[in-house]
């Protein structure tokens, strides 16, 4: 049985780890190298680093930072932010990245998903979705450019298209739940994970250990992204895994 994954997420702005609140109000957290080291020691199953300003500010991906990180990191590393072309992916892979997360560029140019999957395999392509409930509260819409632009594209339709085009995983963010600590958007999570056949990573809103359990047991997530709870030292990955084990969720110890 494959273990459910606990993935710390480092949002990066100008080389520093930050924590946002519904994609605004960035609080500095610390040095990415130190945080990756801490979380790897603590039992992280993977690390995701997202440069949250790269796309809005039209910068290139943070290849230099990744190059510093990879020689001493021995778990999979996924990098997102500012990836627009196969060349950007080449540069990140050459720096030692294992997977890339694409969001805005995939929405603008869905063929990019297939291009990357053909070159590096589907396991390398994580399609990141920034979802926000629409005003009728009936469905969710995809936002791009760090949550700034409403594309009007339906999240469920897009998740299925991303899979069909070769995505290996879906990273599902909720703009509504982000930074609230009130739990993942379980309805959204369940809707997406029951529609696709690729792993879905739950993101945004974790505040308690029970929220994390619910993402797996109710939302059918394959992995969870955790940021604030770990950054603020409210808990540790070891403590999360111990709790999940007691609740009957398979994790790597």
């Amino acid at each position: 049985m494959t273990a459910k994954r606990i993935i710390p997420c480092l949002d990066i702005a100008n080389g520093t780890v930050v924590k946002g609140n519904q994609y605004r109000a960035l609080t500095p957290i610390g040095d990415p190298l130190k945080l990756v080291r801490r979380y790897e020691q603590d039992g992280a199953d993977e690390i995701i680093l997202l440069d949250i300003l790269a796309t809005p500010d039209a910068q290139t991906p943070m290849t230099d930072l990744i190059r510093l990180l990879t020689p001493s990191t021995f778990i999979p590393i996924c990098v997102g932010g500012g990836i627009r072309s196969l060349d950007d992916v080449h540069a990140l892979m050459d720096a030692g990245t294992d997977k890339v997360a694409i969001c805005s560029a995939a929405l603008e140019n869905p063929a990019l998903i297939t291009t990357i999957a053909k070159q590096y395999g589907s396991q390398c392509v994580v399609v990141s979705i920034d979802a926000k409930q629409d005003t009728t509260r009936k469905t969710w819409l995809c936002f791009s450019h760090g949550g700034r632009t409403n594309t009007g594209i339906d999240v469920l339709t897009w998740a299925q298209e991303a899979e069909a085009r070769g995505a290996g995983e879906i990273l599902l963010n909720s703009i509504d739940a982000d930074g609230t600590g009130k739990g993942y958007d379980i309805k959204l999570l369940k809707a997406v994970s029951t529609r696709v056949h690729i792993p879905v990573i739950a993101s945004s809103g974790a505040g308690t250990l029970a929220h994390i359990r619910d993402a797996f047991s109710v939302g059918h997530a394959d992995a969870v992204l955790i940021a604030g709870m770990l950054h603020r030292r409210e808990t540790t990955i070891q403590a999360i895994k111990q709790f999940l084990l007691e609740e009957g969720v398979t994790v790597r110890c």
């Binding site: 049985m1 494959t2 273990a3 994954r5 199953d45 290996g168 056949h197 792993p199 394959d222 790597r252």
Partner: peptide, 13 residues
């Protein structure tokens, strides 16, 4: 079976 996702991805024994 359909319930198993492919690629097999993640930490297994």
């Amino acid at each position: 079976e359909n319930t198993y996702k492919i690629p097999h991805m993640g930490w297994n024994t």
